[in-house]
C-alpha cells in the first residue's frame, strides 16, 4: 500500500473466505450499481496533483514523446548543455530497461531520475509522482519528462505536464502524424528533428506539416537538427517563452 496516493498492489478478494468448513447457501440479491467512472480517472487525479505541485514550485514540466530513436535524448543533451547558464533543469527519464539515457543526461551535469517501466509501454502520473518524491526537483526550473519511446500508449496518460512535445525525425515516414493521430492531436508542439539528413531521405517536410495540421490545426512546428544545430535557436526561444508564461502565472 502506497501511503501517499493510496495505490494498492495487493490483490485482496472480497469473496467468502471462511476457515470453517461450510458454504453459505443463501441467495444473494442482485443489484445494479451505476458507476459512470472514467477508467483513467485515477491517473487524471494524480496528474492534477502533479500539476498543482509544478505550479506551486513554478516548475515548467514538459512531456517529451516520440517513436524510439527520434532523438529525444539527443535534443535534451544539446538543450541542457546550451542553456545551462540561463535555466535550471531537471530530467525524468522513462525507459523499459537500463539507465543509459539517465547516464547521458547525468553527464551534462543535470539532476536526473530514471524510471524503468519494466514491461510498461508508457509513463503514468503515478510513476511521475513517485519520481518527483525521490528527486525533489528545484523550484523555478524546467522539468523534462522523457517518455518511453512509443507513439501510441503515452498519448492517453496525462502526467501533469504543461506542454506535450512530440518529436518526429526525418528518417521516419512523413505520414506518421496520420498513422498515430492521437499522439499528435494531444501534443502542443511538434519538433521535426534530424533535418541535416533531409538530402538523403525521401521525407517531405511540407507533406509532414500538412499531415500534422490535419490532425491538429495550428500546432506550432519547429524544424531542427541536434547535429548541425540548425533550428535550435527557435526551440530555445519557444522554451524560454513558456518559462516566462509559467513565471507570470
Amino acid at each position: 500500500m502506497c501511503a501517499t496516493c493510496g495505490c494498492s498492489s495487493d490483490s485482496h478478494t472480497h469473496d467468502h473466505s471462511h476457515d470453517h468448513g461450510h458454504d453459505h447457501g443463501h441467495d444473494h440479491p442482485k443489484t445494479i450499481v451505476q458507476v459512470e467512472q472514467d477508467v483513467l480517472h485515477q491517473n487524471n487525479l494524480l496528474a492534477q496533483r502533479n500539476r498543482g505541485y509544478f505550479e506551486a514550485k513554478n516548475i515548467l514540466a514538459l512531456n517529451l514523446v516520440s517513436s524510439p530513436g527520434s532523438g529525444k535524448t539527443s535534443l535534451l543533451e544539446r538543450t541542457l548543455t546550451d542553456l545551462k547558464e540561463e535555466l535550471r533543469f531537471a530530467v525524468i527519464e522513462g525507459d523499459q530497461r537500463t539507465t543509459r539515457d539517465a547516464d547521458r543526461i547525468h553527464a551534462t551535469g543535470t539532476r536526473v531520475t530514471q524510471i524503468n517501466t519494466g514491461k510498461g509501454c508508457h509513463l503514468d502520473a503515478h510513476m511521475v509522482l513517485h519520481a518527483l518524491q525521490g528527486m525533489k526537483p528545484p523550484g523555478n526550473s524546467v522539468l523534462f519528462i522523457e517518455n518511453v519511446g512509443n507513439l501510441v500508449c503515452p498519448s492517453m496518460f496525462d502526467l501533469g505536464e504543461a506542454e506535450r512535445v512530440v518529436i518526429i525525425s526525418v528518417t521516419e515516414g512523413d505520414d506518421k502524424p496520420l498513422k498515430y493521430p492521437d499522439m499528435f492531436s494531444s501534443s502542443t508542439l511538434c519538433i521535426i528533428n534530424k533535418t541535416d539528413l533531409l538530402p538523403y531521405v525521401p521525407f517531405s517536410v511540407q507533406d509532414c506539416k500538412n499531415h500534422i495540421h490535419q490532425v491538429k490545426p495550428g500546432m506550432p512546428i519547429i524544424e531542427l537538427s541536434c547535429t548541425s544545430g540548425e533550428g535550435l535557436s527557435e526551440w530555445y526561444q519557444w522554451l524560454k517563452s513558456k518559462v516566462l508564461v509559467a513565471e507570470e502565472a
Binding site: 443489484t31 450499481v33 458507476v35 459512470e36 477508467v39
Partner: peptide
C-alpha cells in the same frame, strides 16, 4: 468508462 455493474450482495 465503467458504466455499471450488476453485483450480488
Amino acid at each position: 468508462r465503467v458504466k455499471s455493474l450488476v453485483v450480488e450482495e
